[in-house]
């Protein structure tokens, strides 16, 4: 299901097509990774249900699009997913006192199963997709000899916008600064009058929002199904680790690396092993340099609980 319109000239042409496909997927992986990072920074939790936010965004947008115009459907999907994120935090996370890592891992895995199974009961096993935002699935734009489908520009553009908006939020707004204060030192932040509990809820809401946006933009290309969350979560996690947990700027670069590597792996290996490739990369990083390509070992040690 490559989002590629095959060009006429082989070799170099192919190379660019693969590159573009890699960047598209890389953007999505980066978006999932940033979702991981937002929650991780606020709580120290890895939310194993992160991929489910992406799935929910796509699925809900497809359903709403049946009776709403596309922009409204996407907006609705994002809002609904944000509500789901808030509910998860309030029901399952908020009232636990210093839960162990193992406990949080298992709880978020349980949540991801519940969301996936609920999606299965609502939407069934069928594969769905939104229409292309502009143009159609067969039309393409010629960028210096490389034919690119317009949706790819949407994915990359929205991804870039989301990253910019988030970094603006964390650096420029009061609320964003409060969240960062919380993640740096929760007790100190509380002493300054910041409600740490609400910041955690907010982190789930933000994380759900960015996941849902990603899910909606990408689903015209990749399609969406009740169980498409888990593979995305694994790859998003790979990217988050590759960039260094908690470091969202590096996650963008790491997303591109993984997306492109994965895309080119199809050149040499059967498509069926594509997922195994990115997981093998994950294992390799975990074994060799768990602090990530851009992170320092000491920073990683500080973050480990």
């Amino acid at each position: 299901m490559l989002p590629i319109v095959w060009g006429k000239e082989p070799k170099l042409e192919f190379f660019f097509q693969y590159l573009v496909a890699g960047i598209t997927y890389g953007t999505i992986y980066a978006i999932v990774a940033i979702g991981f990072n937002i929650i991780y920074n606020a709580t120290g939790i890895i939310n194993f249900a992160q991929g489910e936010f992406v799935m929910l965004g796509g699925m809900t947008a497809v359903t709403l699009n049946q009776f709403l115009p596309l922009p409204l459907a996407i907006l609705g999907a994002v809002v609904i997913t944000m509500i789901v994120g808030a509910v998860i935090e309030i029901v399952f996370i908020r009232w636990l006192h210093k839960p162990s890592v193992l406990r949080m891992v298992i709880i978020t895995i349980g949540i991801s199963i519940l969301i996936r199974e609920t999606a299965l009961h609502i939407w069934g096993e069928s594969v769905r997709a939104l229409p292309y935002f502009t143009g159609s699935s067969t039309s393409s734009i010629n960028l210096g000899g490389v034919y690119i489908s317009s949706q790819i520009l949407w994915v990359v553009g929205v991804g870039a916008l989301a990253v910019a908006a988030l970094s603006g939020f964390f650096n420029l707004t009061m609320l964003g600064r409060q969240m960062r204060a919380c993640s740096a030192n929760r007790d100190a932040a509380r002493l300054c009058g910041i409600d740490a509990g609400n910041m955690v809820t907010l982190s789930f809401v933000l994380s759900a929002a960015i996941g849902a946006i990603g899910g909606a933009v990408v689903c015209p290309i990749t399609y969406v199904q009740y169980d498409s969350g888990t593979p995305l979560a694994i790859k998003g996690f790979t990217v988050a680790i590759l960039g260094g947990l908690g470091n969202s700027t590096a996650a963008v670069g790491a997303g591109m690396i993984l997306g492109i590597l994965e895309s080119f792996s199809i050149w040499v290996l059967p498509t069926a092993y594509k997922e195994a490739i990115s997981i093998a990369i994950l294992l390799l990083i975990l074994f060799v340099k768990p602090s990530g390509l851009f992170g320092s070992a000491e920073a990683a040690r500080l973050k480990e609980f």
Binding site: F48, V101, V105, A272, Y273, L286
Partner: peptide
């Protein structure tokens, strides 16, 4: 440890799952 161990074993499981499938 912790998240890393969980993800690594999960990843191993998925690789093994993908091999017979492909």
């Amino acid at each position: 440890k912790g998240h890393y161990l969980a993800m690594a074993t999960l990843g191993f499981g998925i690789i093994i799952y993908r091999i017979p499938l492909g």
